[in-house]
């Protein structure tokens, strides 16, 4: 058995185990809250999402080198960051993915904890993520032609990934209600090779 098959099999086993745990012994919260959590008690106290026992850290920049699970990142204003990726680090690059998809030259934002040795242990890394306000100038089968300020962009439609939200509604794979001339917010992954965008979601107003 090849290494990848083996690790794929392990991943499936792990998922199976986690699914059983998630569905089986879970607390149900929501519409049919079966004696789960007391919602009022949960909201009574304002809470903050990050633990201040470990100082929160943020990094922004472009990947200049990768060494196993450490990213060497050059900040846009001359800073330098070493970002550690762990099993608990979420990685977004157009979709939820793994560290293998990160390449030298990619841009990123990372949130995590500052370590005593000066590195950042990342909780979450968003690679090449952009969120731009655009006007739709053209619609083709596999792409949208967009303008962002005075800049022209091509937004590529990625099958099984690109979604749309109309007037704040649920995200849907139905992209057919986009119109030329419409203003929209495009969240996607910037492509360093040509400066265009792979679209994750397009939010359309009225």
């Amino acid at each position: 058995m090849s290494h990848s098959q083996e690790s794929g099999g392990r991943r499936l086993d792990r998922r199976r185990f986690l699914t059983t745990a998630a569905v089986g012994g879970a607390t149900i919260v929501g519409a049919s809250a079966l004696g789960g959590l007391d919602a009022e008690a949960a909201f009574a106290e304002p809470m903050d999402s990050l633990d201040t026992a470990i100082p929160a850290a943020f990094a922004e920049g472009r990947v200049v080198a990768m060494n196993r699970n450490v990213l060497d990142v050059a900040g846009s204003h001359g800073e330098r960051y070493l970002i550690q990726l762990t099993n608990a680090t979420s990685i977004w690059k157009l979709r939820t993915t793994t560290a293998e998809s990160i390449e030298v030259g990619d841009g990123l934002y990372a949130r995590g904890a500052a370590m005593p040795d000066g590195t950042i242990a990342a909780d979450a890394v968003w690679v090449n993520i952009v969120n731009v306000y655009v006007t739709i100038r053209g619609i083709a089968k596999d792409r949208l032609h967009l303008t962002h300020g005075n800049e022209e962009l091509v937004g590529h439609i990625v099958p099984d990934t690109t979604t749309a939200s109309y007037l704040g509604g649920a995200l849907t794979a139905d992209l057919s209600r986009t119109r030329i001339g419409q203003e929209a917010q495009v969240l996607g992954a910037w492509r360093p090779a040509d400066g265009n965008i792979d679209i994750a979601r397009v939010s359309l107003g009225h």
Partner: peptide, 15 residues
């Protein structure tokens, strides 16, 4: 409109 209408397709993960 040449873009997919995706009627009846599965709910995207993002949704």
């Amino acid at each position: 409109n040449p873009l997919p209408s995706a009627a009846g397709e599965r709910v995207p993960v993002a949704a």
